Computed example of a mutant assay.
Amino acid sequence: MNIECIDKESAFLSLRTQWEDLRLASEIPSFFLSHDWVRCCWEEIKLNNVLRIFVVRKQERIVLIAPCMLTRTFRKPIPLNTLCFIMHPETQIAGFLISRDSSGRGALTALLHYLLTMKRREWSLLVLDKVPNHSLTARFFREGIEEDNVQQQICANLDISHEAAFISLDKTWQAYLTERSVRFRKTLRNVTNRLTRCGHAQVKMYQGKSAVKEAIEKLFAVSNESWKAADGIAITSCDKRMQFFRDLMNGEETTDRVRVVILELDGKPIASETQIVDGGTVYALRSDYADRYASISPGTYLQGEILKDLFASSHTEYNFGVGLNAYKSHWTEARHQLLRVEVYNQTLRGRLLGTAYRWESKIRHFRGVRRLSQVPSTREE
């Protein structure tokens, strides 16, 4: 197999047609793996990172694309050249674009060998995060890492790194409510009554280019008044993050994927949610509310209205987004798990980190065995 390393932005941009052909034919044709999403992400984070997109071809046919970058990270507290996905905080899942046919596993094995030989001087740590637990990418990496551990004695690990709460939309809103607790239903009624007594509540959804200007104005207005603004983590706290959302909403290929839902009280936007429509799944990227309205729970009210609308739609799943914030557990107990793959290279720093990981694993195992041995026996004498 032939492997090409793309390190120029112009070459990355020109790859779009072939990229999308492979994505749409892969097991997970997610929008978060699309050329357009990755391009928007790269535009925001490219200043401090180096582009590394690997394209694997078999007889001129692309069978794998790895959208990666080189970055600088610190670990215990060793500075490391790290190879990772082109990762953005709003990315919900990541992975390789891999052909579904039998050439997929061979392509992954070839890529790992290439990274450990031809590109071995560039990186000390390989980190692939937010990989879906049951995806082909995860399975290929389990098999590939095991094989390379034997052949090249590299140190690698694969663990659950993130969880995302979700709700299956295979029932009605009323059926969903019936399954929730009496306390939950009472709280939701109280929130609705309290908020509607304060004025005229209206939920508006914006999607498509014609709605971008108004949607962005209201989205940023809510962000400016959220508690996140004081902590410096709001959308409007960073010019580049604001531009990311503008690019996403204005893009010819991305605008119809983005939805902005706004809750207004007497015409004033007080809560918002930015969503990505990805096939049958609706992902919540960002949820905000104006902090001075916190006492009437505008976020909870908007969440209920969003779900009520989705249960009546043709969508199959609502995903709350990566991270198990406390409020999400009020709505669902269901979780998707995402994996993090780490491979330690044979550079000096990579070996140091790999050795530290091995010893930590042994210590954790020893402590677990010791705790187990200290559990009193329940067997009758």
Score class of each variant (00 low, 15 high):
residue 59 Q to C: 07
residue 100 R to S: 04
residue 9 E to R: 12
residue 162 H to Y: 14
residue 336 H to V: 01
residue 146 E to C: 14
residue 371 R to L: 13
residue 296 I to Y: 07
residue 128 L to D: 07
residue 118 M to Q: 14
residue 310 L to S: 06
residue 61 R to T: 13
residue 166 F to H: 14
residue 181 S to Q: 03
residue 350 G to D: 06
residue 22 L to S: 03
residue 110 A to P: 04
residue 331 W to D: 00
residue 8 K to G: 02
residue 354 G to V: 06
residue 181 S to I: 04
residue 316 T to W: 10
residue 137 T to H: 10
residue 27 E to H: 08
residue 13 L to R: 14
residue 45 I to F: 08
residue 296 I to S: 00
residue 234 A to Y: 01
residue 355 T to S: 13
residue 327 Y to R: 04
residue 237 S to C: 08
residue 13 L to H: 11
residue 42 W to Y: 12
residue 144 G to I: 09
residue 46 K to S: 14
residue 326 A to L: 12
residue 211 A to P: 08
residue 341 V to R: 06
residue 178 T to R: 13
residue 157 N to M: 10
residue 104 G to A: 08
residue 198 C to K: 15
residue 319 N to Y: 07
residue 151 Q to A: 15
residue 39 R to N: 14
residue 306 I to Y: 08
residue 293 Y to Q: 01
residue 303 Q to Y: 06
residue 363 I to P: 05
residue 96 F to Y: 10
residue 150 V to D: 07
residue 351 R to Y: 03
residue 262 I to V: 12
residue 323 G to T: 06
residue 172 T to I: 09
residue 142 R to P: 02
residue 181 S to G: 07
residue 213 K to V: 12
residue 168 S to G: 12
residue 55 V to W: 01
residue 158 L to G: 03
residue 340 R to V: 12
residue 25 A to K: 09
residue 157 N to H: 11
residue 229 A to L: 10
residue 224 N to K: 14
residue 284 A to T: 10
residue 162 H to R: 09
residue 335 R to V: 08
residue 191 V to E: 05
residue 80 L to W: 00
residue 239 D to V: 12
residue 125 L to Y: 05
residue 1 M to H: 08
residue 347 T to Y: 02
residue 58 K to H: 15
residue 309 D to C: 06
residue 22 L to W: 00
residue 294 A to T: 08
residue 274 T to A: 15
residue 18 Q to N: 12
residue 245 F to V: 04
residue 67 P to Y: 02
residue 256 D to I: 11
residue 180 R to S: 01
residue 141 F to Q: 02
residue 125 L to V: 13
residue 217 E to G: 09
residue 376 P to I: 03
residue 336 H to N: 13
residue 299 G to R: 02
residue 168 S to W: 06
residue 370 R to G: 11
residue 264 E to I: 02
residue 258 V to M: 15
residue 278 D to Y: 05
residue 99 S to W: 03
residue 23 R to P: 00
residue 29 P to V: 00
residue 233 I to W: 02
residue 32 F to D: 00
residue 261 V to L: 08
residue 208 G to Q: 00
residue 62 I to L: 04
residue 198 C to R: 15
residue 98 I to S: 01
residue 234 A to S: 14
residue 32 F to V: 07
residue 69 M to P: 07
residue 187 T to N: 15
residue 290 A to P: 01
residue 20 E to F: 00
residue 161 S to M: 07
residue 285 L to G: 04
residue 274 T to S: 13
residue 210 S to W: 03
